[in-house]
Design a protein around this nucleic acid. Sequence first.
DNA 1: ACTTGGCACTCACAAGTCTCGGGTGCTAAT
DNA 2: ATTAGCACCCGAGACTTGTGAGTGCCAAGT
Lengths: 339, 339
Amino acid sequence: MLDDRKLAVLRAIVEDFVQTNEPVGSKMVAERHVLGVSSATIRNDMAALEDEGLITQPHTSAGRIPTDAGYRLFVDRLSTVKPLSVAERRAIETFLAGSVDLDDVMQRSVRLLARLTHQVALVQYPSLSKSCVRHVELVPVTNNRLLFILVTDTGRVEQRVVDLPIHVDDDTIALMRARLNAVVAGKHLSEVPSLVSELVPERSEADTVAMRALVTTLLDTVAEQREERVVLGGAANLARAGGDFHGEVQSVLEALEEHVVLLRLLSEVTEPEEVLVRIGAENRTEGLTSASVVATSYGSASHSIAALGVLGPTRMDYPGTMAAVRAVSQYLGRIVAES
Amino acid sequence: MLDDRKLAVLRAIVEDFVQTNEPVGSKMVAERHVLGVSSATIRNDMAALEDEGLITQPHTSAGRIPTDAGYRLFVDRLSTVKPLSVAERRAIETFLAGSVDLDDVMQRSVRLLARLTHQVALVQYPSLSKSCVRHVELVPVTNNRLLFILVTDTGRVEQRVVDLPIHVDDDTIALMRARLNAVVAGKHLSEVPSLVSELVPERSEADTVAMRALVTTLLDTVAEQREERVVLGGAANLARAGGDFHGEVQSVLEALEEHVVLLRLLSEVTEPEEVLVRIGAENRTEGLTSASVVATSYGSASHSIAALGVLGPTRMDYPGTMAAVRAVSQYLGRIVAES
DNA sequence: ACTTGGCACTCACAAGTCTCGGGTGCTAAT
DNA sequence: ATTAGCACCCGAGACTTGTGAGTGCCAAGT
């Protein structure tokens, strides 16, 4: 049903439409691409493609534009990965080189990705649940209040104020700190809950209570929704591509503010090295029906730490975007790993 | 030149235009507001107001709309502060109540402010240079690398990785930590540079070197541009008010991504309690010529810690916005102070 | 000296009409 | 199976016209 030439026609349509943003007709395809057949033949092929639901015409007697399914087929079987230019690679390297701490790295990455792809960029912070504890710190604030600080090997620093039900002196705090660290340091964060719950029933009545409060907070910190942070950039690119969103720019912007939504978008990345593409309605999110997400994970060679990607109109340069996303993920993985 | 009735006409024009977004004509003013004069009289007044540069007509023979100067006069002399409804005050309180740490507070505040005003909200983190050191922590990472953590009394936690030129063992670190804290704890951050530079020339050769590196970083952290953080929310409101920006939504979005720009917008707030309004071209920023900023500072009663505000189209409900901004600043100040 | 009603004038905007051109589908010939 | 030719379709843009809200000005009224 779908011979090679028909696919070639589909590819031509996608490429032209992405570039020009205008419905592409049989004549255009015939003259801009060397297919060796006439426009009439292409018309027939187009009719077939339309039957398959891969392309559609916005109104009778206009050119065709790809449907979501058309894009899908394009990225799955028709697109060849476009290698980045040397200039681009250099740009990535120099851009990420001067970073000074994790926040900075995230910040730079997201900007870089936005600039490279001309889309809205999303970068997730290294996931807590995939990190190891490097150190736990307790800082007294007032008599019965202390600041709990958690440092992971991926460079994240989470802090939280804990209200203790009782007064604790500095010695006790030092002790608690030592015990906590002894148990928890170097451990994977997923193990922490079980490790820490054994910790409670020791010592005097007083610090049992304190400890219990502390441990609860610690577990909270680990478990909490907020553990996953995501930073985004390049929102201005939305305005440029505004028309593509059929006036639902507003809902796209709203979605961007709901970090929970963004996290869900990024969350489905599973295989490392693989670039996930979700097209239009495929991301089951109100208001993102004419948006696509290109995402992948980053981390050390062995296993992924978190995800990153871009969000743009369905009419986007998939090969180029995928290449950029992958490249940034590689550099970023390297940087986070070595810090 | 500008008698009371002319001012009343101006007020009527501003209010109506803000509400309807349509040029308002003499007839409308006459019938929607009780001025006790006929439309012809109002026409004359309008002509006068136009001569003064307070209103203008988008095209001949259409209604008038306020100019920047018109808005200016309106907020300076014509607007009466609109008190918040009880519901709104309650909303503020409950919304900010459940916050768990500083990041959370900022996050919530910005959302709240955006919802209240239907504009883009900006909230600056407590300024480092106006905070006091609560505690300084050093966490070894590798032999010659350590994580430097600074905790302020406003709840901010800044961290930075320091590369030390030499190996330091745990004892040395403990010592350095103790010495640093002794000197610096409780001190205002602006004093820190001078305090800390006296600190160096003690002890053995080895930690002199280490100490020097450490101190440099500390100073950097304090001095750095990045010390000032700002968080923003409600960008989706831009889309709603999109038309007001005469198609320069893009540049507005770009400006929003430049946190430096935002900080400058907030920076000029000086008097506490006072609400600063910058209208249109008054904020000397490329691309924000049809935007207004309403900002104020927040902090404890005595002195301000940082600023917050909203950004929206010049055509905005100034009295309402100013009230909301002030209210949030008061609640926020209270919360930050007591933590 | 203001205020007011009246009147002529001016545009922006919406609706209606026309043309143009790229695009389609079909059919008959290769 | 491919192609050339042809009739037809319809959206975009140019042009026209009518309408109405709004203005400016003047002469009359207070």
